[in-house]
Simulated scan of single mutants.
Amino acid sequence: MIHILTLTYLAAPDVVAAHLPEHKAWLRDHADKGRILLSGPRPDGGAVIVTADLDDTQVRELVESDPWHLLGLVSYGLTAFEARRTSPGVVTSPEPDAGVLLINVATTNNAAETVDTLASAVEHVAATADGFLGSRLLTSVEGDAVINLAAWSDEQRFAAIFDDSEFSRRYKAFAETTTGAKFRLYRTSRVITPAR
């Protein structure tokens, strides 16, 4: 389950701020371990943390290790939900799993045409392929390259799309708009978050 943790300050702002460095170090450590996906202050005071896919025991241990919690500076509210959709590139599992991220880089002389033809292939996959978790198409600032980031549940399901003749037809149309294209599958090896 993904958990949204809502922190409410129980101490004066200057007391909370005095212990911010320890809290930030704790946040970074858990973000680097893949346990925390997002965190930040709320405009009305307090803060929010969004966890990776953790069980109740892991979330309790996470909260109980927060220096602000240990010092009694915050209380935690909790909302849990099952993440059924994620944006490509967002990995919700803190531990390596079978999921893969496709990165397809294509050079082109006509980015708009390349994006349109690639989108046609990806939309077909989105409607028909098991294990497809989502895609994001990017165009270089210079307009000479298109990148497709696509998340898949596993390598085998990704490979199965090449057995689909309609996908192959659409992918060939995409390839004809490029001056070169190459894809690779990736798994997360390490996460490094900002040191601030």
Results as ranks from 00 to 15, higher is better:
R84A: 06
V125A: 13
A127K: 12
D53H: 09
W152H: 02
A173N: 03
T92W: 01
Y76F: 02
T114V: 14
R184C: 07
P94V: 10
L118M: 14
G45D: 11
Y76M: 03
G99E: 13
I161Y: 14
F167Q: 06
P43L: 04
I147G: 06
S39C: 04
I161W: 10
R136S: 15
L73G: 10
V59T: 02
W152E: 01
R170V: 01
S140M: 10
G99H: 14
S39Q: 03
A106Y: 00
V100K: 06
D144C: 04
G89F: 08
E176N: 03
A175H: 01
P67V: 01
R184Q: 11
R157I: 08
A150N: 06
G180F: 07
D55R: 06
V48Q: 01
T51K: 07
S165K: 11
G180N: 05
S75Q: 15
G99Q: 15
T114G: 11
L54N: 02
F167L: 07
T177H: 03
T117G: 00
N110Q: 14
G131F: 05
N104W: 10
W152P: 01
G77T: 14
R169W: 04
G180L: 10
V63P: 03
I147N: 03
L70C: 05
I147C: 08
F81C: 01
G99N: 15
G89E: 05
Q156P: 11
Q156C: 13
A181Y: 03
F174K: 00
L149D: 08
V105P: 02
A151K: 02
A121P: 06
E113K: 02
N110K: 08
Q58N: 09
G89H: 05
H124W: 11
G89T: 05
F158T: 14
L62W: 11
L149I: 05
R42W: 07
N109Q: 15
R184N: 08
P88K: 13
E142H: 08
L73T: 07
V50A: 09
R60N: 14
R136W: 15
R85Q: 10
E142L: 07
F174E: 00
A129R: 10
R85M: 12
P67M: 01
A129V: 04
G46R: 15
R85V: 06
R136D: 15
N110S: 11
D44T: 08
A119F: 12
R136M: 15
E113L: 01
I147W: 12
F183V: 03
A173W: 01
I49V: 15
T107D: 12
T92G: 05
W68P: 00
T114E: 10
G46S: 15
G77R: 13
S75K: 14
W68V: 03
A145N: 06
L133H: 14
S165H: 12
T108S: 08
T177C: 03
T179P: 05
D144W: 02
S120H: 08
S87M: 02
T114F: 11
E123K: 09
S65R: 10
T107L: 09
V63K: 12
